[in-house]
Design a protein around this nucleic acid. Structure first.
Length: 473
DNA sequence: ATGTGC
């Protein structure tokens, strides 16, 4: 594999062999994975062989090894030119994403005396851990179908939130095209009682405060002045999305030969977007996306109740955006507008100012891009910029440096918790193993990832947030 | 990520 440094923030993997386009990795020298013993760059090259891929196989500065596609990968295929959709390009946690809430008129100093109490109440109010039930125990199939078709919009219609919440959600809180018939009975079964739950791993709900402001005009417009208190929610579609990914990978593995598609890694199983298998996956994926959005809406309500009871203020939605999704979008390719299937896996959509999919009140500033760090480090809000070649995509987090196993081997939950509390960060975990696996040192430096994203021209920094309390999945 | 693994 030949890698060329194009700029200090962009590397090109030369097109060779079965690759249909080059690979483009946005990273600094220190963030770039080691090409000899890291699988992630090989995955970027593998993705470049997919039928219909256009422009390049992209990777964001938080790139690391994933299932088939790298995490931090972006690939767009031309729908009208045999372009494929691949479940591995979305990942197992379909529509995993981030929602940021801003506490109305609550500065950090005013929260601090009651922070411990608020965290104890969140500890009770936020269900989390593997296999847990959510705050909304959906008992009947009709209600779950409402969630799968209507997402956060349906949740609000059912009384879980206010209409203003939806204006600040990607796609108004509901992704069109959900096909409940493409969701297996097993996936439905797993989804029934998990709406409004965090899950595990890197999922969390954090109380944060604005620590640094980079663009005062944009930040003020978003209510993000220095010291402002926020709540960040990071979760996805739980067991339902996982089951849908499993089901459709299996179906596509069986179908690929029929379409004459060969891929260098069986984890890149795919089918043409315009095939029954491609359409079934996209329909089920949209259903999982809506489940993920309803999930974040229910957790918003749970956190809101705690803040309203214990801080005498409420929480407003700043934005909700997914970083694991494939979407049908229009983009120019070689001077012509084409319909593309844009896979973002561990990559945040980042629309520039005046993009037609933005709500009117964000038209001037662009889409808020929400990027969490680790439980001990900063998170960021950025905004989309106009000349992003990666189909308006940015990093999604710090990116793992160590495997879960390696991270847990070097420490334990008590050590990690003590380290964090020493720095004034309260932790409410769900499993000791999970706390150890999620230690901040297991990840890349989020400040460096954000700096690289900003300098590479993928998005622009607005504010830096630091954690005050972490409710960990 | 996941009722964590054939």
């Amino acid at each position: 594999m030949k890698i060329i440094e194009e700029t200090p923030y962009r590397y090109r993997i030369e097109q060779e062999g079965a690759m249909r386009v080059p690979g483009i990795v946005y990273a600094t020298k220190s963030l770039l994975p080691d090409e000899r013993n890291d699988m992630a760059l090989t995955q970027v090259a593998n993705v470049a062989t997919l039928p219909g891929i256009v422009r390049a196989s992209f990777a964001m500065p938080d790139i690391h090894w994933g299932y088939g596609f790298p995490i931090g990968g972006v690939a767009a295929t031309d729908v009208d030119d045999g372009g494929v959709v691949s479940p591995g390009g979305v990942g197992f946690d379909i529509s995993c994403g981030v929602r940021l809430l801003v506490a109305r008129d609550l500065a950090r100093e005013r929260l601090e005396p009651s922070l411990r109490a608020v965290m104890d109440h969140l500890d009770h109010a936020i269900p989390r851990g593997v296999g847990t039930k959510g705050v909304w125990r959906v008992r009947d199939r009709a209600t779950l179908e409402g969630v799968l078709s209507g997402g956060a919009q349906y949740a609000v219609q059912q009384g879980h939130g206010v209409p203003e919440d939806l204006q600040r959600c990607e796609d108004g809180g509901v992704l069109a095209g959900a096909d409940v018939a493409a969701v297996s009975g097993r996936a439905i079964e797993r989804g029934l009682d998990q709406v409004g739950s965090l899950g595990s791993g890197n999922h969390f709900l954090e109380i944060q405060a604005v620590d640094r402001v980079y663009d005062a005009a944009v930040a003020t417009g978003m209510g993000l002045t220095e010291g402002a208190v926020c709540v960040m929610i990071h979760t996805g579609s739980r067991g339902l999305g996982h089951q849908i990914c499993t089901d459709h990978v299996r179906q596509m593995e069986a179908a690929m030969a029929r379409y004459g598609i060969t891929v260098p890694d069986r984890q890149l199983a795919c089918a043409p977007v315009e095939s029954p298998e491609g359409q079934a996956y996209l329909g089920a994926m949209a259903a999982a996306a809506n489940y993920g959005r309803a999930n974040r809406q229910l957790l918003t309500e749970a956190a809101r109740r705690v803040f309203e009871a214990h801080t005498a203020t409420t929480l407003d939605v700043l934005y909700d955006v997914s970083h694991n999704l494939a979407k049908i979008e229009q983009h120019p390719v070689d001077g012509e507008t084409r319909t593309l299937c844009v896979h973002r896996k561990g990559a945040t959509r980042s629309l520039p100012p005046h993009h037609p999919d933005l709500p009117a009140d964000l038209a001037e500033v662009g889409q808020p891009v929400l990027i969490p760090g680790t439980m001990g480090t900063a998170s960021y809000v950025l905004v989309g910029v106009g000349d992003n070649p990666a189909f308006f995509s940015t990093a999604h987090g710090a990116g793992r440096l160590q495997s879960r196993h390696a991270a847990a081997r070097g420490t334990n939950a008590d050590v990690v918790r003590r380290d964090l509390e020493h720095r004034g960060i309260l932790v409410r975990g769900s499993s000791r193993r999970g706390i150890a696996e999620e230690k901040p040192e297991a990840y890349k430096d989020i400040d460096e990832v954000i700096e690289a994203s900003d300098r590479a021209g993928l998005a622009r920094k607005v504010v830096r947030l630091i954690p005050l309390g972490v409710v960990k999945g």
